[in-house]
Simulated assay, not measured.
Amino acid sequence: MAGGAKARRLPRVVRERQMVDAAVRCFARHGYQAASMDEIAELAGVSKPLVYLYLGSKEELFTACIRREAGALLAAVDAGVGGPEVPPDERLWAGLLAFFTYAAEHPDSWVVLSRQARTQGEPFAGEVARMRDEIVGFVAGLIGEAAGEADVVITGRDVDALAQALVGSAESLASWANETPGVAAKEAAATLMNFAWAGLGNLMKSERWSPR
């Protein structure tokens, strides 16, 4: 028996990952208030006292979920985007594709970030806001670069407004795509890219943006 117990022991980092995985799943399905620490422990295959020992209270566990999932989303977008030698429109396309792909492949994570965390007030909403600010800053930088290359004068306020609008559209579209059967991440990314870069007027004339 003792040997069997030792065989089941896992490093703390592995156990914590299992607990956060289970918590993300539970919070996404039931919401923060209705999620049960008992169910999270059961899904993770550990005792409830061990969850409290490793990750603290329910609030601390939810915060850990938000931080991990936000970090993973930002890392996915960052990895998908090319360097400054890549044209701004191609970088935006790559970033959108990475964003929608992550949301599609990690639907529970996206529900936690886009819906659950924002509706629970602080400190959870602030965690998501920091992630969003980073994405908005990235998009604003691309818009500014594109304007500079086109020799177009655009105010910082307009750049910020456009970046906010594009990120807000991406968030809404990602949720819609995940809830609509048959909508692939690439299709959602292309829809927003054409709307944002080619413009609605050009789309009405069947003029679409496409990667080089």
Rank of each mutant, 00 (worst) to 15 (best):
G3Y: 09
P11K: 08
P11G: 08
V14S: 03
R17Q: 14
R17C: 03
V20M: 02
V24A: 03
V24N: 05
V24M: 05
R25Y: 02
F27Q: 08
G31L: 05
G31P: 04
A35Y: 06
S36N: 07
S36Q: 09
S36G: 12
D38Y: 01
D38I: 10
E39K: 01
A41Y: 02
L43K: 13
V46M: 08
S47E: 12
S47C: 06
L50N: 09
L50Q: 10
Y52D: 01
L53Q: 14
S57L: 06
E60T: 10
E60S: 09
L61W: 02
F62Q: 08
I66Q: 09
R68I: 09
A70N: 05
G71P: 09
A72V: 02
A72L: 13
D78V: 01
A79I: 04
G80A: 05
G82T: 00
P84I: 03
P84M: 00
E85W: 06
E85A: 14
E90K: 09
L92E: 06
A94T: 06
G95I: 01
A98V: 04
F99T: 05
F100Q: 02
T101R: 08
A104D: 01
A104F: 00
A104E: 08
P107K: 07
D108S: 15
S109L: 07
V111G: 00
S114T: 07
S114D: 15
S114N: 13
Q116L: 02
A117C: 11
A117Q: 03
A117S: 11
R118W: 09
Q120L: 11
E122Y: 06
P123H: 08
F124K: 00
G126P: 06
E127D: 09
A129H: 13
A129M: 01
R130K: 10
M131V: 11
R132H: 07
D133P: 01
I135W: 02
I135E: 00
F138R: 13
V139I: 14
G141F: 07
G141R: 05
I143L: 15
G144Q: 01
E145T: 06
E145D: 14
A146I: 00
G148L: 10
E149G: 05
E149Q: 15
A150R: 15
A150L: 14
D151K: 13
V152S: 12
T155H: 03
G156A: 07
D158A: 14
D160A: 14
A161E: 11
A161F: 07
A163Y: 06
Q164D: 11
V167K: 07
E171L: 14
S172A: 12
S172M: 07
L173P: 00
A174N: 03
S175A: 13
S175V: 12
W176M: 09
V183E: 04
V183G: 02
A184V: 14
K186I: 00
E187L: 13
L192S: 00
N194Y: 08
F195K: 06
W197Y: 15
W197F: 05
G199T: 08
G199F: 06
G199E: 12
G201W: 00
L203N: 08
M204K: 07
S206I: 00
S206H: 10
R208D: 00
P211R: 15
R212E: 12
